[in-house]
């Protein structure tokens, strides 16, 4: 399968889907999307970022949906079904990550609810990370 973006998430048969972040070897700041070059911590001169898999679970910071087809370059399914989006606060690393939600509508979501990372296809085929029901 093609990924919609390279290097932001990985799928492994053993561990499932996880986001790929970076950690500054100097101060320990973690980033998503993965970052090259300078550490975003203004007090850290570090430029060495190491890749690391991010925690697969987190709690919903907030959520919404797109009742109308988003404009290009999004490729909307036809017929269009509202896309659900959730911003999820990852365990341990203190980052909120936005993603589409697979298999849940806004009526089934709540702030604080636990979700787990999965992946699913965009309407034109390539895979993207998605939030799904925690197993």
């Amino acid at each position: 399968m093609t990924y919609a973006i390279d290097g932001w998430f990985a799928i492994s048969p053993q561990d499932g889907v996880h986001l790929i972040g970076t950690r500054c070897t100097g101060c320990g700041t973690v980033c998503f999307p993965p970052r090259r070059g300078s550490c975003p911590n203004p007090r850290c001169p570090g430029t060495d970022m190491e890749a690391l898999p991010l925690p697969r679970r987190g709690r919903v910071w907030s959520y919404t949906n797109a009742c109308y087809p988003p404009p290009e370059p999004y490729v909307a399914a036809r017929p269009y079904e509202p896309v659900t989006l959730a911003a999820v606060e990852l365990d341990e690393v203190g980052i909120v990550v936005l993603g589409q939600v697979k298999g849940l509508t806004v009526d089934q979501l709540e702030v604080g609810m636990e979700l787990e990372l999965t992946a699913g296809p965009l309407a034109d085929g390539p895979l993207v990370w998605m939030w799904g029901r925690a197993s």
């Binding site: 320990g28 700041t29 911590n41 007090r43 850290c44 911003a87 203190g94 980052i95 909120v96 936005l98």
Partner: peptide
């Protein structure tokens, strides 16, 4: 720590 347009994620509070 607020998810801002057009970002995919917030900064991390892991180190600061």
């Amino acid at each position: 720590t607020v998810l801002e347009l057009p970002d995919f994620a917030t900064d991390s509070t892991a180190a600061v």
